[in-house]
Amino acid sequence: MIQFSNVCKRYPGGIDVLKNISFTIGEAEMVFLSGHSGAGKSTLLKLIAAIERPSSGSILVNGQNISLIKDGALPFLRRNFGLIFQDHKLLYDRSIFENVVLPLKICDFDHRESAKRVRAALDKVGLLNREKANPIALSGGEQQRLCIARAIVNRPSILLADEPTGNLDTEYSGEIMKIFRSFHQVGVTLVISTHDEGMLGQFNGRVLALKNGELHP
């Protein structure tokens, strides 16, 4: 489903963030990316979603070589992914409902059907009764859950989460991880980055350990 072959990423200035990375993630797999901050976890996730382009090597997603993809085709590739960010990237000028409906609007989704889907997604993360509120009124953990609802509303086959529990206390992170596990059970491919070694022990997912831009088995 996701295949990296000899991928290198060098940012301007000559810093090699990723060096010769190769791995394969199969369908419906749950994979953790671990490593200290600066190890290249975020860059690796950005490469999968084609937010960054690799300096060399090739990246295949669903059999498509995304290092060669044209700018015009990029939006349609991104619709395969649900992206979850450490800083949430919520829009505070609109309601919770409006935040979650955005991916469906972008896909030109039927109006009534999208309202149903938004409520289903909000229900899954436990925010159904807050749909009219502004995201600013939510706690950190709730904002992260809202970000998850937005990522899953168009039912993507791949979820990419960058430090989803980075700023949260253990109780909140437990909730978030429980949500992720339920997606894994229905066959969604998950790639989750974390620097929290303790969390890895609780799950039996595969771990890709990054250290100074290199993959350690």
Binding site: I51, P75, K89, L91, P103, I106, C107
Partner: peptide
């Protein structure tokens, strides 16, 4: 700016 950035990330076309 933020809205545009988020829209790009979740697959909005330039036309959108």
């Amino acid at each position: 700016r933020e809205e545009i950035e988020v829209s790009r990330l979740i697959g909005a076309t330039s036309a959108f």
